[in-house]
Amino acid sequence: MAPLVAAFFRGGVAPCDTGPVIELFHVGKVYPDGERPALVDVNLCIAKGEFVVLAGPSGAGKSTLLRLLFCAEQASSGQVHLLGKNLARLRHSDVARVRRTIGVVFQDFKLLPELTVFDNVALALEVQGRRRDDITRRVLSVLKEVGLAHKTHQPATALSGGEQQRVAIARALVVEPAVLLCDEPTGNLDAERAQEVLELLMTAHVRGTTVIVATHDPALLAAGRRRVVVLAGGRVVHDAPAFAEPPSLRTLRDGWAA
C-alpha cells in the first residue's frame, strides 16, 4: 500500500486532487537538546497551487515544519517528500538544487545589509550561474512587481521593515519557485505593511505558486478562505480545506493552549 493511501486511511492526510507538491508521512522531529518533540506524527499533503496557512502558537512546530521543507533540518522519523523527492535520501550536493526550486521568506528578512536591493535579489540567481543580462532583466522585473523599482540601488538597510520584507519576497520570487515558504512574514510589520505583503503572496499564488505561510497573525488567518492547518504541541489539530469554514475560535484557542 502506498504511504499516501495508508496515511489517508489513518485519517491524517487530506487527499491531494491536483497532484502533491509536498507530502509528509508520519513525520517526527526531535531536537537533540529539546525537552519534547517539535513534531509528532505529522501527516500532510499539499497540492500544487494551494495556499496553506500553518497556524499555531509559538513552539507548535510551524517553523520546524518549514525547516524540514527547505532542508535545513532532517526529520527524526517519517518521510518528507518535496516535488516528488524524498528529502531524507537527498545527497548533500542535491540539497542546493532542491533549494533553487523553492523560495523562502523569513520574519527577520535575512537580507545582506551591505548589499543593495538589486544585489540582494540577484544573489538567488547568481548562485544558479545565470548570465548577467538575464539576472538584470529578471531582478528589475520582480522589483517592479513588488513596487521597489525606484530603490534598486539603495542599500537594503536603508529601507523600512515593510520594504525589506518586499525585497525578501522579491528574492524568493525571482527564481520563479514552485513552492514559496514563508515563516511569519508579517511578524515584524504593522497592519498596513502586512497587508501589502499578503497581497504579494496572493499574487504569487494566483500565478500558480504553491504558498505555505506559517503565522499566528490573525489578519492572515482571517483573510479569505484558504486551507488552514493548525499545529499544537507538534501535532496537526485542525486541517480544513480552502472551501471549508476557517477554524473556529475554540479550535485555535485549544491549539494555543495545548
Binding site: 550536493s93 542546493a96 533553487r100 535575512k110 545582506l112 544573489l123 548562485v127
Partner: peptide
C-alpha cells in the same frame, strides 16, 4: 556566517 547561511538558503552549492 549569516551571509553564507543566506547563500545556502537560496541554493548556493558548496563550490559557490
Amino acid at each position: 556566517k549569516d551571509e553564507i547561511a543566506i547563500q545556502k538558503l537560496v541554493g548556493a552549492s558548496d563550490a559557490f
